[in-house]
Simulated scan of single mutants.
Amino acid sequence: MRVLVVAAPLPGHLTPLLPLAHALWDSGHEVLLAAGAESVSPGTAGPLPFIDVARNVRVGRAAARSVLTHPVAARAELAGQGSDSGLRSLFGPVNEELSDAVVTVAEQWDPDVVVHEPLAVAGAIAAARAGVPAVLHENGLHDGAALFRAVLDSRPMDRARRRLGVTTVPPPAVMLTIAPSSLVGIRDGLPVRPVPAAVVPGGEEVPGWLQAPSERPRVLVTPAGGPVRGNLQFSALRAAAELDCELVLVRPHPRIARRAGPGVKIVGRIPAEDLLATCAAVAHGGSARSVLGALAAGIPQLVLPGPGDRRLNAQLVEARGAGIAGPVTAESLDRLLHDGELAAAAREVRGEIAAMPPPQSRVEVVTTLA
């Protein structure tokens, strides 16, 4: 059978769907990834064919228009306190522009099932027009069904449906959730274990010092990424100067690297699971991928609240007791390293994630829909 996998044209939106896509491919099914060129890091798709359906989509232009036409909602989104109106004002226009290309791909490739993430409503439009079932695959900790409905109900998507002759969009035939229930509560979707994306070819080898336990507690600090105020790694450098720990900075800016003292080590492009394996804690910018990676490793995390879903992610981790919602200070890093309750909660969630069904177990759920 043929499965079309659709994601919004933004970094990281496709990545959480790749484990299921690879599982389908490995089971002998045809898979086509449809997203933007920025949606996935080079090489992580492996053998899966990919088509850029966002060549005519200008996310930056849509974001600028959203700020001008909905300034209150845009400011709230940047503060991590967005609402449905903020989602509609950005992802409505993006999906309106995306819908024509995705529908064209579906017409030409003729899939049996469409798998899409919550903010790629264009995938559901294409499935409805083609008369095939759609699978909603969450890619973060937000309620995927609520995100999907908010964008689908936007005015731009009303225009897209009328233009494409899609009068109704059926609800997803199946929803898959990657969020541990102890963080977000019980959801209607079928759980599927979040797993790291494929290793990026050309990445650096894990250095020998990183494979061995450190004499002092090791704290991994990743780049914050996105429009996050301040610099996470610079703040960590200053805070760690008062503590007896070893900092590991991932791809720091040269200006920050020059400030690194003898207790600071620098690494480049190494898979996160390899970096986390010998670390006592991690500080990061709050993306869902970073949160889930730390939870799967079972180590406490400091999450810097930020725009989009990052504030919610930080709040969920802190409420679960598995980490701290930033900022980075000497006090917060010290607690991250020495609070036994944080470590115990992180290990509990690690066990919960390990018990979730792997992507391979959900292949039959998808294929029986056709």
Results as ranks from 00 to 15, higher is better:
Pro327Asn: 08
Gly326Asn: 00
Gly321Asp: 08
Glu348Thr: 14
Glu318Thr: 13
Ala354Trp: 04
Glu341Leu: 13
Arg350Ser: 13
Gly306Ser: 11
Val328Ser: 01
Ala343Cys: 10
Gly340Ala: 13
Ile324Asp: 06
Ser361Glu: 15
Gly326Cys: 02
Asn313Lys: 09
Ala322Asn: 02
Ala354Glu: 14
Arg311Val: 01
Leu333Phe: 08
Ser361Lys: 11
Ser361Asp: 15
Leu312Phe: 09
Met356Phe: 11
Met356Pro: 12
Ala314Leu: 09
Gly323Glu: 09
Arg362Ala: 13
Ile353Tyr: 02
Ala314Trp: 09
Ile324Glu: 05
Asp339Glu: 10
His338Phe: 10
Gln360Pro: 00
Val317Phe: 00
Glu364Trp: 11
Gly306Gln: 04
Leu333Met: 13
Gly323Thr: 11
Pro305Gly: 08
Arg335Met: 08
Ser361Ala: 15
Ala322Lys: 03
Asn313Glu: 09
Glu348His: 13
Pro327Asp: 09
Pro305Trp: 10
Ala325Ser: 15
Ala343Trp: 07
Ser361Tyr: 01
Ser332Asp: 04
Glu318Leu: 07
Pro327Trp: 08
Glu341Asp: 15
Ala346Lys: 05
Arg350Asp: 00
Ile324Pro: 08
Asn313Ala: 09
Pro307Ile: 01
Ala345Tyr: 01
Leu336Tyr: 05
Ala354Leu: 13
Ala319Ser: 13
Arg362Ser: 13
Glu318Gly: 06
Ala345Ile: 00
Gly326Ser: 01
Leu342Phe: 09
Gln360Thr: 14
Glu364Cys: 03
Arg310Ser: 04
Gly351Phe: 03
Ala345Ser: 14
Val317Thr: 01
Gly321Phe: 09
Asp309Thr: 11
Glu331Thr: 12
Ser332Gln: 03
Glu352Leu: 05
Ala314Phe: 09
Ala354Gly: 04
Gly308Ile: 02
Leu336Arg: 02
Ala322Gly: 03
Ala346Met: 06
Ile324Ser: 10
Arg310Ala: 04
Ala314His: 09
Gly306Thr: 05
Ala355Tyr: 02
Ala319Gln: 14
Asp339Lys: 05
Gly340Thr: 12
